[in-house]
């Protein structure tokens, strides 16, 4: 089985976010980057499937050279080879176009990724890739088993779970508890040095969106306690200060 795992290179979840270039770009100075946590689940499940029944795992990232440490980590965890599409991942459509282009050249049985990235959280890439390739896409997938050419999935839906059987090939947006995150071991890190990492140029740079401005949420104000017997004061404050009435 050939598995493609698409990973994002995103700011650590504890990063203090700020912007540059007139609030149009993330300020990357001093920011620690990690593999998207949901992508990490997808990668772990892909490695488990490979360990159980053979095959290959290819990691794909759309990003500039700065993302290579994140790609090497995926190789250290157990992926066999990697492809980096040498471009800034500007929006979901652009990223999906690149993934679909790579997938068309290589025919994968399974294309796994996180349910969403944790920087822009669009959650659209898996659906777009499925459409572009004309194959099913499912998200968010919490359980994934393969039996022959069929994938058995469990998906979280509003108020419950859905069990699905889908023919391969398939695109899945993954989340926990599909697998446990894997920590690369020292031998894996050493062997990742020599695993192939191919850099390819992007196809068709069609920009459908442009960022005009980022804004941080307003800082949380202090909590004011109003005694129950002063309900009128509370209403006044909701009118004059919070301006919600």
């Amino acid at each position: 089985m050939k598995i493609l795992v698409c990973i994002t290179h995103v700011p650590d979840t504890t990063t203090k976010i700020s912007f540059t270039d007139n609030n149009t770009k993330l300020n990357k100075a001093g920011v620690q980057f990690i593999t998207g946590p949901y992508d990490d689940y997808a990668l772990s499940r892909a490695i488990e499937l490979k360990e159980a029944s053979g095959g290959t795992v290819t990691v794909l990232n759309v990003g500039l050279a700065e993302t290579e440490p994140t790609i090497r980590k995926a190789l250290a965890v157990g992926a066999d080879d990697a492809i980096r599409v040498n471009a800034e991942p500007t929006d979901a459509f652009f990223v999906a176009t690149q993934i679909a282009s790579i997938a068309k050249q290589n025919t994968y049985d399974l294309i796994l990724m996180g349910r969403e990235s944790i920087d822009f959280n669009s959650g659209q890439v898996h659906g777009l890739v499925g459409e572009m390739l004309g194959i099913p896409s499912v998200s968010p997938v919490m359980k994934l088993d393969i039996e022959g050419t069929t994938a058995k999935l469990s998906r979280e839906i509003e108020g419950g779970k859905e069990q699905l059987e889908v023919s391969l090939p398939l695109v899945a947006g993954c989340q926990e508890p599909i697998a446990e995150w894997k920590i690369p071991n020292m031998r894996g890190i050493m062997t990742a040095r020599t695993k192939p990492l191919k850099v390819v140029e992007p196809t068709g740079k069609e920009e459908l969106t442009t960022v005009t401005k980022y804004e941080l949420p307003a800082p949380k104000g202090a909590c004011k306690m109003i005694p129950a017997e002063e309900a009128e004061k509370l209403i006044t404050l909701l009118r004059t200060e919070a301006k919600v009435l």
């Binding site: 650590d12 979840t13 504890t14 990690i34 946590p37 949901y38 979280e156 509003e158 926990e176």
Partner: peptide, 14 residues
Amino acid sequence: MATSTLDTSVSANK
């Protein structure tokens, strides 16, 4: 939309 329990406010690994 169903929600993940991933708590991104504390740490990458809950």
